[in-house]
């Protein structure tokens, strides 16, 4: 099983920090215009949210794993709900590599695998180095072509 790049934790923590900041802003707004919120309480709530977010990010990194198995791409992920997904190569419609501005700064990239399914139709593997992402994309594409099923949805 392959883990994600450790730097993905930074990305997730950054996302949490943004969320905590938004929460703080909302609380400040409530304090200003609606009900007075004690400053200690405000700081406390934001701090708790931030700590929970960081703990979540660290745990999620520990849990996230994927593997190219004989017939399928296999992934394990999820802190609250733990999900083990198998995406058979025959079912892969196309594969993308993507990276957003924050991911780019951190030197990370994601691979998104699309199937014709209805739910979980796209499976995202975040936190890969650009090289690894491109290699994974190529491998998946080759495996998908190799195992092409002629059943045309």
């Amino acid at each position: 099983m392959e883990s994600l790049h450790p730097r993905i934790r930074l990305l997730w923590i950054a996302q949490t920090a943004i969320l905590a900041a938004v929460l703080g802003a909302v609380l400040v707004a409530v304090d200003r215009w609606l009900v007075p919120v004690p400053t200690a309480g405000l700081v406390g709530i934001v701090a708790v949210a931030a700590v929970l977010g960081i703990a979540y990010a660290v745990r999620l990194y520990q849990i996230w794993q994927f593997e190219l198995q004989g017939d399928a791409l296999y992934l394990e992920r999820g802190v609250i709900t733990f999900v083990e997904t198998a995406v058979p190569f025959v079912r892969v419609q196309h594969v993308d590599t993507q990276f957003g501005p924050v991911e780019r700064t951190l030197g990370l990239s994601s691979v998104v695998v699309y199937t014709a399914g209805s739910r979980n139709a796209d499976v995202r593997i975040p936190g890969l180095t650009p090289d690894r992402a491109r290699k994974l994309q190529d491998t998946l594409r080759e495996l998908a072509v190799e195992s092409e099923a002629d059943d045309a949805v």
Partner: peptide
Amino acid sequence: YFRIQTVSTRRSV
């Protein structure tokens, strides 16, 4: 079985 796209095992807390 032939029509399966993906299979997932899900477990909540």
